[in-house]
Design a binder for these strands. Structure first.
Lengths: 195, 195
DNA sequence: GTCTATAAGTAGATAGAC
DNA sequence: GTCTATCTACTTATAGAC
């Protein structure tokens, strides 16, 4: 199916999302103008509106896409074994997934304030759904007596905050591999929850 | 010493900083205008420039003030006993200090991108100085054989990320007191590092 | 699908009256 | 010290030519 001359929607579309992701992560949503995004893509500002109805949708689509991908990948790798094995799989998955997408992670944690109330509700729901997967593991292990966790909800939030924190300091060029980092964090989590 | 009629610098100055702190925390530095801050204070936009040379200084002064206060308070409470006692004191201090200043904490972690390079360097130095206090404790405990920590630098960052995370979900109206939260987190940290 | 041009509004910061 | 008024530049988003 030949396309109209000058039509580049299948190329420009992803480039717009990529440019927005990179610029939002670097400078923050509010500090980035549509003109900056357009310049990064290599088009004029008006052309962006062929790919997004407005700037807000650009942010929301990036965040929803990231959360959908996170949940789908988490469920795809989900071990069904003992709580301790499921926890280990969760910790390693969370770190590797987040280290591979530093920009999307940064945006998803930093730009919640810049979502409209309706969009915020959607993203919050997805985030909570992801957290529930970890809490379910902690509850199962506590019920089985292999974990000693005083408060599964707070332990869930504490572990996720600790794990996600890797994205603030990790550099691929540093002395540790992603797997090495995951190993260190799994050791800490394991000891913190073991009965 | 009578002041000139209409002079309110000793009242307006702190109100400007308070308004900027609250608005920056709520909406983000880039999304807040000088006119919004002025409206919150109850003056016109031009009057703000009696208290700050520009918007950037407003942000930097808030962040530097927060970091200075954090370091001073940390040193003031610093236990000099055994590593385990010093770690417990650090954990409890960090949580109570941060839960008492949610807006300043939020700004200091979220608005680093909006600092000029020179200002960023200053804040980063203060942050690292604070982190060093925790790493020193972990090293002392590891050398003494009471902690088993594979990598003191990464463990330092992991613990701080976990502890600071409380500010994202804690509500004073919730079921837990600040002290109760500190207790739960200290339990996790203790088990994660104990030999 | 992309361009140029533009509408309509807001930004940070300053000048000068009071 | 605060006000009003203003400068210059930039903002998101749209209209219409090609």
């Amino acid at each position: 199916m030949a396309r109209t001359a000058g039509s580049h929607s299948d190329i420009t579309g992803p480039k717009v999302a990529d440019a927005a992701l990179r610029l939002f992560a670097r400078h923050g949503y509010a500090a980035v103008s549509m003109r900056q995004i357009a310049a990064e893509v290599g088009v004029q500002a008006g052309a962006l509106y062929n790919y997004t109805p407005d700037k807000q949708s650009l942010l929301f689509d990036l965040m929803r896409g990231h959360m959908d991908e996170l949940i789908a990948a988490s469920d795809a790798q989900g071990s069904t074994g003992a709580p301790r094995d499921r926890l280990e799989a969760f910790v390693r998955f969370h770190i590797l997934f987040h280290l591979a997408r530093p920009d999307a992670v940064f945006i998803s944690y930093m730009e919640l304030r810049n979502l409209t109330p309706e969009n915020f509700t959607v993203i919050e729901g997805l985030r909570r759904s992801y957290e529930d997967r970890l809490e379910t593991i902690l509850k199962a292990g506590t019920d089985a007596g292999v974990f000693a966790v005083a408060d599964t909800k707070i332990t869930t939030l504490a572990i996720i905050a600790m794990l996600t924190g890797v994205t603030t300091w990790y550099r691929a060029s540093g002395r540790l591999s992603s797997e090495g980092v995951a190993e260190l964090y799994w050791d800490m989590v394991r000891r913190a929850v073991n009965a």
